[in-house]
Each structure stands twice: as structure tokens, then as C-alpha cells.
């Protein structure tokens, strides 16, 4: 085993790697938080399309989830990271021959994770849709709300509450899936642990630290979600 002092390696500063891993943890959190609203929005609309009366909408939505739930996350990521820039470049070259397209790994990761997250979230939303009795829609129409307003004012608030536990699981998977973006070079938690392990040869130490970071994020998330659930429950009780 290499003989460097473990505590120096785990220190904060130029000789230690903890600051790098902490910075990586921030990137992990930022990536997950940036993905969440996009993924939720797409997931909601996909679920809405899936329970629509229009067969073509259902078909399109089903293709979407089949593709993005069927492909390994890593394959989607590689396809997107290497394929899309080439594709865009071919398109842009028609207008500006010397332009280059730069999809940085954060953006690529965000888009790919949104696609994956939304296809899982749409399943959660779909079962939540099914749990809402049709009287709720009829009530909305009866008081003269449009399709969209009924959705927004009547269905969505209930939907979110029903879907919440399922979405919590999606969020935990999302947190873990951010680690995959490390393989296309985004300097997040695992990537920085990997660099540290590579340079110092203390592989077990740094991968262990990375595991603890993810575990910590999971613990914090479960505290946060139970707090949100409590407040949701409270509001429900007040009605």
C-alpha cells in the first residue's frame, strides 16, 4: 500500500482531496436539482398524454417511455454526449461552415438524466392520474373550468400529493444516476474521487468517501421528503 499519510490526503487544501470531493458533491447536487424541474415537467406531460383519449398521443408517449426506460443509462449518455454534437454540427454547418458546437458534460448530463427521470416519473404520475376519481374532472367542468384549468387547479394539486412517495423514489434514483455522468468527464463526486484514487492510489479510501457522500445525500433527502410529507399532511388536515 502507498505510504502517504491518510489524514493529509483527507485534508482540506492543496495537498488534500477533500475539498475536491466536496466541490464534486456540490456539482452532484446542482446537477440533480437542475434535472428535477425539467424531468418533473416532462414526466407530467408524458403521463397526461398517456391517459389521453387520443390514441396518437398515447402512442407517442409510450414510445418515449419504452425508449428511455429500455436503454441503459450509460448508453443513452454516450449516444447523447458523442452523437448529438456531431448531429448538431452537421445541421449548423449548413448555415455557418466554421461553427463548432459545444455540449458540455453538465448540460449533456442534465438532458439525459431529465429524459430518464421523466420516463420513470411519468409512470408514477400515470398511476396517480388513475387514482383520481373522474368526479373530480366532472366537478371542474361543471363549474365552467376549461380542460387546462381543471387540470391545473383541481387535478394537479391532488396528483402531486398522491404521486409524492413514488417521486421520492425517482429522486433517489436520480441522485445515484448523477454518478454515471462522471464517465463523460463531469467533475462531480465520483469523478473527483476517481481522480484522487488514480493519483494517490488510495482507491478504497476515496471510493469509500464517495459512497459516504452519496449515502449522506440520501439521508438528507429522506429527512427533507418526510418534512415535506408532514407539511402536506398538515395542510390536508386543515381542510
Amino acid at each position: 500500500m502507498p505510504s502517504q499519510n491518510i489524514w493529509i490526503l483527507l485534508s482540506w487544501g492543496p495537498d488534500g482531496w477533500i475539498d475536491d470531493i466536496a466541490y464534486g458533491a456540490l456539482v452532484t447536487i446542482a446537477l440533480a436539482l437542475a434535472t428535477l424541474p425539467i424531468g418533473l415537467t416532462i414526466g407530467f406531460f408524458v403521463a397526461w398524454a398517456k391517459q389521453s383519449e387520443e390514441p396518437s398521443l398515447r402512442l407517442a408517449a409510450n414510445i418515449y417511455t419504452t425508449v428511455f426506460r429500455g436503454l441503459p443509462e450509460l448508453v443513452t449518455l454516450f449516444l447523447f454526449f458523442f452523437g448529438v454534437p456531431i448531429l448538431l454540427q452537421h445541421l449548423v454547418r449548413y448555415f455557418r461552415p466554421d461553427a463548432t458546437i459545444d455540449v458540455n458534460s453538465f448540460v449533456a448530463g442534465m438532458i439525459v438524466l431529465s429524459l430518464i427521470f421523466s420516463s420513470y416519473a411519468s409512470e408514477v404520475f400515470l398511476s396517480a392520474f388513475r387514482a383520481i376519481p373522474k368526479g373530480q374532472y366532472e366537478g371542474g367542468y361543471a363549474i365552467g373550468l376549461s380542460n387546462w384549468l381543471t387540470m391545473r387547479k383541481v387535478i394537479l394539486p391532488q396528483l402531486l400529493r398522491i404521486a409524492f412517495p413514488g417521486l421520492e423514489n425517482c429522486w433517489l434514483s436520480l441522485l445515484k444516476d448523477t454518478s454515471l455522468v462522471s464517465v463523460v468527464g463531469l467533475a462531480e463526486t465520483l469523478r473527483n474521487a476517481y481522480t484522487a484514487a488514480r493519483v494517490t492510489k488510495h482507491a478504497f479510501l476515496f471510493y469509500g468517501v464517495a459512497a459516504l457522500v452519496f449515502l449522506g445525500l440520501a439521508v438528507v433527502s429522506s429527512f427533507a421528503t418526510s418534512a415535506i410529507l408532514r407539511s402536506l399532511g398538515k395542510r390536508e388536515a386543515q381542510r
Binding site: 437542475a34 425539467i38 461553427a99 463548432t100 458546437i101 459545444d102 455540449v103 458540455n104 448540460v107 438532458i111
Partner: peptide
């Protein structure tokens, strides 16, 4: 806002 940021970031030209 996020999708706007995404577009500007994604198609930023490197010149």
C-alpha cells in the same frame, strides 16, 4: 428559465 439556460449553454458557439 431552465430550458432557456439550456439552449444558450447548449448551442453556445465557440469562436
Amino acid at each position: 428559465a431552465a430550458s432557456a439556460a439550456l439552449l444558450t449553454l447548449g448551442v453556445a458557439q465557440a469562436q
